[in-house]
Design a protein around this nucleic acid. Structure first.
Length: 261
DNA sequence: CCCCAGGCACAGC
DNA sequence: GCTGTGCATGGG
């Protein structure tokens, strides 16, 4: 599979694979996960990737996305040029709708390591528990804090058919986001993450603290509405890709000891 | 013991 | 509509 990808940047970028996949080697050339009774491995080689995961992995890595064309479209300024140069090969991923919703319900006011622990505790055999199971499980020992009640209530609504999660597939971005935000614990940021990583709506532009810092430091933008309008205007249908690169650049700058605030 | 974390709901303007 | 505040808890 001659796919243009940097596997480590893709799998360790705060997207859902960051939570359920495990890095196999120190360099991040291979990742594995359990998926039911199977053990799936993805390895990067000179020409692309090699995997026993079949279509599941092709879908996960969004093989239809032409990164060169995407770069041409979102490389609109020096910040984006730097971000693309640094994280070249990072792809957006397409994940299960429910597992994505669960993951980002756990994410609010948390950190990636803890989210990873939470999601793994909410899984069996590498698969996130279904709505019925989560609604019927005692979650206290997972220490989700105040997120536990959001997760329980959302699971109940989906399990009882009061919220048609997969029905959002057919909706436009704006309408799907309104629907998602009617769920307890789902605000603008969680909804955008679910739509981007779970439903493949690439115009979504999740704005967390890191993206907020990036937009303030490098684009001079302050308010949430300013940021959303700017992103939609500048990157349009590919705003989600721009967001992923800005998120990683902002976090990378902190790791490098550079203040971006 | 401190601060922070891929925010949200709610109150008060 | 916008802004401030409390929130449970682990990681660093």
């Amino acid at each position: 599979m001659g796919l243009f990808v940097d596997l480590r940047h893709t799998m360790e970028s705060g997207q859902p694979p960051h939570f359920l996949w495990t890095r196999v080697d120190a360099e991040g050339k291979a990742f594995s996960r359990r998926l039911g009774e199977r053990e799936i491995v993805v390895a990067q080689n000179a020409g692309g990737i090699k995997t026993n995961g079949g279509r599941h992995v092709n879908e996960l890595l969004r093989e239809g996305d032409d990164l060169q064309k995407i770069y041409a479209a979102i490389d609109t300024d020096g910040t984006m040029t730097a971000a693309i140069s640094r994280f070249r090969g990072m792809r957006l991923t397409k994940n299960g709708e429910w597992e994505t919703l669960v993951s980002y319900l756990c994410s609010q006011n948390s950190n990636i390591k803890r989210i990873r622990n939470n999601v793994r505790q909410l899984s069996r055999n590498g698969v996130v528990l279904g709505p019925e199971q989560i609604a019927g499980t005692d979650l206290r020992k997972i220490s989700l804090g105040y997120r536990e009640e959001y997760l329980r209530q959302t699971a109940r609504l989906v399990a009882q058919g009061e919220f048609d999660l997969l029905g959002l597939r057919g909706l436009e971005y704006e309408e799907a986001r309104r629907e998602l935000q009617s769920l307890p614990g789902v605000g603008t940021k969680v909804a955008d993450c679910v739509l981007l990583y779970g439903f493949g709506k690439l115009e979504a532009f999740p704005c967390d603290v890191w993206v907020g810092r990036a937009m303030r430091a490098w684009y001079g933008l302050r308010t949430r509405k300013q940021i959303a309008d700017f992103a939609a205007e500048r990157w349009g249908e590919l705003a989600g890709y721009a967001q992923q690169y800005l998120f990683m650049l902002a976090r990378g700058e902190l790791a490098a000891g550079n203040k971006i605030i």
